[in-house]
Design a protein around this nucleic acid. Sequence first.
DNA 1: TGTACATCAGTGAACGCGCGTTCACTGATGTAC
DNA 2: TGTACATCAGTGAACGCGCGTTCACTGATGTAC
Lengths: 208, 208
Amino acid sequence: MRYSREHKQETHARIVRKASVRLREKGAHGVGVADLMKEAGLTHGGFYAHFPSRDALLNEAFAYAVDRSGEHWCKICDQLPPEKRLATIIDSYLTPLHRDNPGHGCVMASLGAEIARESAKTRKAYAAKLEQMIDRIADQIPDLPRKAARRQAAATLATLMGTIVLSRIAGNSEFSDEILAAGRDAALSGASQTRAAARKPAAKKTAN
Amino acid sequence: MRYSREHKQETHARIVRKASVRLREKGAHGVGVADLMKEAGLTHGGFYAHFPSRDALLNEAFAYAVDRSGEHWCKICDQLPPEKRLATIIDSYLTPLHRDNPGHGCVMASLGAEIARESAKTRKAYAAKLEQMIDRIADQIPDLPRKAARRQAAATLATLMGTIVLSRIAGNSEFSDEILAAGRDAALSGASQTRAAARKPAAKKTAN
DNA sequence: TGTACATCAGTGAACGCGCGTTCACTGATGTAC
DNA sequence: TGTACATCAGTGAACGCGCGTTCACTGATGTAC
């Protein structure tokens, strides 16, 4: 059955979309070609008409997830004044909803450690995506010099994803909520502190 | 060959030790029974004289790694005055050495996300170990009320492990060093801020 | 407009490899006498 | 002290299963004439 022009790319996109959810839910080793194709309403043999290998799909699915996160952040910050943006990202990230739904959540929190173990070439592609992600967050801190914004963004992302990972290990218990709250406090106070320092540029540095 | 009393437990311990390194280096899916036994100087068939299953070994290896981290922290904080302990943990955690040697580093940074995907039963065992780890850090913040110390410990661990994970994705590039520095600043300022709040208990809370 | 042919996304059986696990066997050493 | 037997950590071949990948085939639709 020869299909219309757009048909193939639609199928391709559908597979990537489903894969990016499963990837975040089950990890890189939890995504089987046969299962995925079934979920996309196809049989496994057709897979190689769309991707040269399973790894190639995972790379696409990863990139897709990063892009979705970036868009998500742009969207929730769109209408907000600059000084509320970072805090809003933090609040929307560290929720029980995000913790309990890794499939639609931050890919760094679901895959972080696994990515670090990839081959040098793959890892570099992922590193570029991480940099993009940090830049998207830094974009939401417009009243800081770019370098400081990136620094703040990197530290915030580290705290956010670390907090989600730990809270997921703890399940959805009271302990887990304790971790979420602790991470939230730390991230928010880090954000407001940097902001304060930006207002009076030449202030205490090692003045503890 | 029937061996002496201690022989078996020595072998058992050696396998666990080697496994805990490989586990952190390669992840849960990167640890093969045959490879591991070879590394311990044995053949794969003998594995089941020591462990009921591969998973059982991984659980032991994980617990072993957590215990080593706890001991490590106790050791480096041993001779230090309380107010320097948390900062010392942060400084010794966020180093290029730690980033580049996951096999001997923090197991939460190497496996975090993977653990969260285990079966409920396994995950609870890991959650208990995480709680133990947070408690070991909280022990090093003796001048804070226990609850606040645990909160600080959880937030610090989240920032530390998130920072190491991101820096590993970034390789050992300049970008990676930027992440390490950003995480370090955030963790240290979080620590000193909580300390400051502890000194004057009834101070600004939402006074941004 | 109608007809013959080419295309190629998708099918489903089969292959091959890695790996966890099992099992019959070995042989050095502990133990009973 | 010496001897016969029992034990069991360790060996290495084999099994079985899951899974990524290949391949010959299908058949609906696009295209050439």
